[in-house]
């Protein structure tokens, strides 16, 4: 579970990154979904990312960056929400106040002229965030749906 090996990169200009930790239960859903999308489609995977600030410099003038992250929004576990970061006002937090959250990271990338043309965040409501490499059943069930939704996002981007 290291940086994905994208020996064959399809869909140039489109990037995906999972944000989270494989070993903190549902926090690992972002990297798992991104890995699955990259394996199936060949989209370049620039994750996994544990600190959003690490994304800067990796966007590589992309047309579209898809960022998959676990969320806590009081929705039922496994709920999937899509945010267009160029349009939506999304308040995000980081577990470390010494870090920069996802929304400010994208703003910082924009200020530095390094942001993707479009950034979409796929948020998946988590349930368990303790130690462990297993997703909760509700979140595990959402993985396939999230992959399909990202596939649709990519297809509509190509139209």
């Amino acid at each position: 579970m290291t940086d994905a090996d994208n020996s064959q990169v399809n869909f140039p200009g489109i990037l995906i990154a999972g944000i989270g930790n494989y070993y903190r239960a549902d926090d690992g859903v972002g990297p798992r979904v991104a890995d699955a999308v990259a394996d199936i489609t060949g989209i370049k995977n620039i994750g996994p990312i544990s600190e959003p600030l690490d994304l800067i410099g990796k966007f590589d003038n992309a047309k579209l960056a898809i960022l998959v992250d676990a969320m806590r929004s009081s929705s039922p576990p496994g709920t999937i929400k899509i945010f267009d970061m160029n349009v939506a006002e999304v308040r995000t937090q980081t577990t470390s106040t010494h870090g920069i959250n996802l929304e400010r990271t994208i703003s910082l990338a924009a200020a530095l002229g390094k942001a993707p043309e479009k950034a979409i965040v796929v948020g998946i409501e988590g349930k368990l965030f303790g130690d462990g490499d297993k997703l909760s059943p509700e979140v595990a069930d959402a993985v396939v749906d999230a992959v399909k939704m990202i596939d649709q996002i990519v297809l509509s981007e190509l139209e």
């Binding site: 600030l53 410099g57 910082l108 530095l112």
Partner: peptide, 28 residues
């Protein structure tokens, strides 16, 4: 990212990058 913005009266590093992109790029 955390302290220098104070000395410019700025909210954070995003605002610092808007006025001094070079500094933030070097820091990163």
């Amino acid at each position: 990212l955390l302290h220098a913005p104070d000395f410019f009266g700025l909210e954070d590093a995003v605002d610092l990058a808007k006025i001094d992109k070079n500094a933030v790029e070097r820091g990163l």
